[in-house]
Structures are given as C-alpha cells and as structure tokens.
Design a protein around this nucleic acid. Structure first.
Lengths: 163, 163
DNA sequence: GGTACATAATTGACACGTCAATCAGTTGGC
DNA sequence: GCCAACTGATTGACGTGTCAATTATGTACC
C-alpha cells in the first residue's frame, strides 16, 4: 500500500508505516483482549488469569496435587514467578504447599476444596467469555487464519532467525 | 474442524477443544512476541516498551513537551499508570515535569536531552526487531489476514456484543 | 463571591513479573 | 565419608499495572 520501491528494501530495512500499523494493531488488540478477559474473570470470580491457569493445571492433576516444578513446566512459568504466585494463592486458601516425601528439597502443591470450588465456578463463565470475545467474533476462515499466523510466528521465533 | 453438529451449538455454548487451542495459540504467541521484543529493547537500550512509547510520543510533540493528560490519551494509558511511570522515568532523567502556565493543576512533561538520546539510539534496533520477529516472519497475505483479524476483534469488542 | 461540582494529577496499597542471590538437600567422584 | 557441583524452591529488590482515595485547581451557577 505504501508503495515506493517494493524491491528496493528487501530485508535489512525498517518496517513501513503500514507494517508498523499492522504490528501495533496486532499487539494492542491482543493486549486489549487479554485485559478484558482478565477483568471479567476478576469481577466474576475474584481470580486472576494466573490463578485460573494454576487451578486448571491442579484440577487435572492426579490427586489434584503436583510438584512445584512440574506445575511450572505445565503452565510455562519460571520457577520464581510460580513461587511468588503460589505464596499469594496460599494466603487466600486456594492451594496448600506440602513437603515432598521423596525429595525433601521439593514442595508439592495441593488444590484445596476452596480452590476447587473457585475454579469450578469460574470455569464456565470464563470459557463463555472466550467464546464471546474471540471465537464468535471471527469467521471460521479468520479463526483458521489466526491460527496459522500464530503458528508461523512461533516457528519463526524458535528458529535461529535470519539475523 | 472438530465437526460434530455445526448447527447444534450456534452461540450460547462453550468453545470446543480446537477453538480453545486456537485461542491459547493466539494469546500466548502475542505474549511471547511482546516479551521477546521487550527483552531485546531492554538489553539494547535499557528502556522498557513503556518508556519507548512515552519517548516516542514526546519526540513527535511540538517542542518535545506535552500536557500529562494529552500524553496519556496519545498512548492510551490511564492517568494513574502514566503518573507512576513518569515518576520512574524522571528519576532516570529521561523526562522532566514542569508546572503548566495556563492551568496550575496541570503538569507538562518535557523530553530531556538524555531522553531524546535514549530514544534515538533505541529506535532503529527496535524497529528492526519488529520487522524481524513479526513482519518478516509472515507472508504478505498473512500480514493482511492478521490485520483483518485484529480489526474484526476490535470492532466486536467495541459493540454492545451479543450477550 | 462563595458553594458545588468537575477536572488534572498524584498517591498508596497491593497484585504481578523478572532477575540475581540464597538456602537446603541431592548426587557423583574420589 | 567428604567435597564439589547440581537442583528444587524461595527470597528480596525493583519495575510495572490497577483501583480507590486524595489534593489542588478550575468553573458554573446562584
């Protein structure tokens, strides 16, 4: 759209104004969506999306308990982040930490009844919100396209990159 | 893709497993990208993306100064968020706050030479990173598709929604 | 001109994230 | 058995974000 020597800048140059606008649209839209979902979840359930992710992983775990590092891997968080977050969740009674029998360095994170209840009542409204704000907003073709874009971007991130 | 009674669930139901996966891909990819860009900017320039946005807006402003609330509107931040952020940036000498002549409630935010330098040297590498991680990763068609997805999602967010 | 209301901006409290440092316990080599 | 290196997890410091309350002006209306 910007035109101007489309071959003159193959790689090695800066994004055009149009490209930059697309980038901003992309990243800001995702951010708005994230924040809208978070705020609905918060007001409906007093849970953050972080809480939700932790509770979801624990709900699906055998005996509703997991080693702390397993949990971190499952939800893709750094250990330190999880540790801080679990501290806050423990204060609110959503989870409990127990010493690990097989490795006394380790900790096991256990879902409490309170936590299980909170997750149960948050779950349906949260999924509905995802459907309403994301899935229902897009045509099936757009959904597929969004998936391909995401997959392509991730593939590109993982590779050594053309730098 | 999941198939199974495509008409049986028009609205009012929960996302399918496939739809949920698409949602997660979408939101997590954006998050990874955001965080990669932020970390590059940080290590190359000691600026956060927040700093960058503020400096960009000020760079483009007449006399490199703006009323605080104008600035907030320009970058789409809440006033309180900006206030906290400006406090941190002022401590680092990137901006300065001056009293406003025409309205003594107001504050004017001024770009310092230090801030201008920081922005100048951050700018090119940052734009290059955007090109490398986002623009160059996608085909032109995918870029357009990403733009349409973003626009559609925002339009949907703005409307009273089908709830 | 004074009271009521709106507006500009800041503040405090607290949740969240990252990084570097720390602590405790395990493991491998000798 | 013992020391070094590794690993699981926590901690502290600090930047970032949100919400509610506050401070200080401006403005309108009587």
């Amino acid at each position: 759209m910007t035109g101007s020597t489309p071959e003159g800048r193959r790689k090695r140059h800066l994004p055009t104004a149009d490209e930059l606008r697309l980038w901003r649209d992309y990243i800001e839209t995702a951010e708005i969506l994230r924040s809208e979902l978070a705020s609905r979840l918060q007001s409906e359930s007093s849970l953050s999306t972080g809480d939700y992710g932790v509770l979801l992983a624990l709900s699906e775990a055998r005996e509703r308990r997991m080693r702390s590092s397993e949990l971190a891997a499952a939800i893709g968080w750094e250990r330190s982040r999880l540790s801080h977050h679990l501290g806050r969740m423990e204060r609110r009674g959503l989870i409990r930490r127990e010493e690990c029998v097989t490795d006394s360095r380790g900790a096991e994170v256990v879902l409490t009844p309170t936590g299980a209840d909170a997750f149960r009542s948050a779950s349906i409204p949260h999924l509905r919100a995802i459907r309403e704000l994301f899935v229902d907003a897009l045509t099936p073709e757009q959904l597929v396209a969004a998936g391909e874009v995401a997959a392509t971007l991730r593939r590109h991130l993982g590779s050594p990159s053309g730098a």
